[in-house]
């Protein structure tokens, strides 16, 4: 008899526990405003709170910011190349003869292989002239993997004045 009562009461307490859980799910079912799902990619073009925006510090990809005169800050010192754990960066420099007749190293190509980058931020942090930064771009999918090899300095760009 005792076991029978326990059997019945177990059924009721079991159903009660299920209903308790369903109260929570039911609450969300009837209050659609609590839903937090974002509609991607539609929210790229939305305005206001629903717009998809990354935080300023988000490590999307390494870029080299250029000024409006197409000038960058990279002196081709190669520190970023040495610090990168994955061999992502390759700095190719040329020797220019400056106005005063002295030889001076200048940046030819700053090659960045996005496919090999693990976003550790060591290059950005250790660059002595703060020539590198992270962009907030995160949609990196391309059809050809050659497109992931990027040359960060823009064509025809020069070194910013006052940076040695």
């Amino acid at each position: 008899m005792k076991s029978f009562i326990k059997y019945i009461s177990d059924i009721f307490s079991g159903v009660a526990s299920l209903l308790k859980g369903m109260r929570v799910t039911g609450k969300y079912f009837f209050s659609p405003r609590a839903i937090v799902t974002q509609q991607y990619p539609e929210n790229r073009h939305k305005k206001g709170k629903k717009k998809l925006e990354m935080f300023d510090r988000f490590k999307g990809e390494v870029i080299m910011p250029h000024s409006e005169n197409n000038q960058h800050k990279c002196t081709a010192c190669g520190i970023c190349e040495n610090n990168c754990p994955n061999g992502t960066i390759e700095v190719i420099s040329v020797m220019n003869i400056g106005e005063d007749g002295k030889k001076k190293r200048a940046l030819d190509k700053h090659i960045y292989r996005l496919s090999m980058c693990s976003f550790c931020a060591l290059c950005v942090k250790t660059c002595p002239s703060k020539a590198l930064a992270f962009s907030q771009e995160f949609e990196h999918a391309v059809f050809d993997r050659k497109k992931l090899i990027k040359i960060l300095n823009k064509p025809g760009s020069t070194l910013m004045k006052g940076i040695e």
Partner: peptide, 10 residues
């Protein structure tokens, strides 16, 4: 809520 959904569930 976690408790209500899973912890108490029979």
């Amino acid at each position: 809520e976690y408790d209500a959904i899973l912890t108490g569930n029979v």
